[in-house]
Amino acid sequence: MKKCPECGNPSYDGAPVCGNCGYKFPKPKVKVPVQEDIFEDRPIINKNENEESTIDIIKENKIVIGTILLITLIVIGIIIATGPSSDMTKNVNGTNKYSDANFTFSYPSAWKEINGSDELHSGAIFFEGSNNTRIEYYNSTSDLSSISELNTQRASSAQGSNAKINTIQPIQINGQNASNVILENSNGNFTRYVSLLNNGKIYVFKIDGKTMNDVTSNEIESVLKTVKY
């Protein structure tokens, strides 16, 4: 119940006017509910004590995870180090190794692989050694049956190019028969052919240098000693 402020007559709470004097009661203020703030803090929901958090799981399995990561890094390192299949592999003793089917040899890491061309042997590789010595390696099929025949063929080829034969002899490389031919070219430079014959294949090192010492240096001889096939 409420009372009229003019005459004091009692009226019910929802009456718009006083039934005695006609006084108009003011409209009651409607209380608007406070809108919920979407950014207000929410109560933290505690997980079941038996449930492990992701961080706890990682902590408990860090040894296993660490091992997996280590193995992954090692595998990636090996892939990067080896790269795609290649005939060139680097050793830790300052030399590189070249493999050609069953034929291999090692050469100083100081040798630079250079661009070169050989019309008769498209798969030849070229290096630059000490004193600007140029070393070419290639292989090809052959119907020759002996080192003697190989030397004869090399001598005939030299005569056709107006080169003087300085040396022509059979030698052995790691117990295998080989041919050693040294030519003095018309320009005064020297070319040495070291050839190995095996199972219908001829493996050849062609060394070009300014002097005889360049093509017969200890550096060249050390490479020839590493030949295996």
Rank of each mutant, 00 (worst) to 15 (best):
Y193T: 03
C4M: 12
V32K: 15
Q153R: 13
G123A: 07
N162H: 14
V75A: 08
C4K: 11
F105D: 02
W111P: 00
V30P: 00
Y137D: 01
I65S: 06
S99T: 15
S186C: 12
T152S: 14
E113V: 06
N91Q: 11
V34D: 10
L70P: 01
K24G: 12
S117K: 06
F190H: 02
R192N: 01
N151T: 02
N198S: 15
T67P: 02
A158E: 01
R154T: 12
A178Q: 04
P108E: 10
S145M: 10
I168M: 10
I207F: 12
Y138L: 09
Q153F: 10
C7I: 12
I80Q: 12
S99R: 10
S142I: 01
F105A: 05
S99G: 08
L69H: 00
E49A: 14
A101N: 03
F103N: 01
I173G: 02
N139H: 11
K59I: 15
N185M: 15
P26H: 04
V194L: 00
N151P: 00
D37F: 08
N50M: 13
K210W: 04
K27D: 15
I168T: 08
N9T: 14
N96A: 06
S109Y: 03
L70D: 04
A155E: 14
G8H: 03
D143P: 02
K164Q: 02
Q159M: 10
D143N: 14
K201G: 02
E40T: 11
H121F: 12
Y229N: 03
I65E: 07
I171W: 06
P26K: 04
Y138P: 00
N46Y: 09
L144C: 05
V32W: 10
W111M: 07
N151M: 11
T216V: 06
K112I: 11
E49N: 06
A163Q: 14
S109I: 03
K29S: 00
D208G: 09
E49W: 11
V30S: 12
K112C: 07
A163Y: 14
V32M: 14
S140V: 09
P108W: 12
F25H: 00
S85V: 12
E184S: 02
N185F: 09
V34R: 10
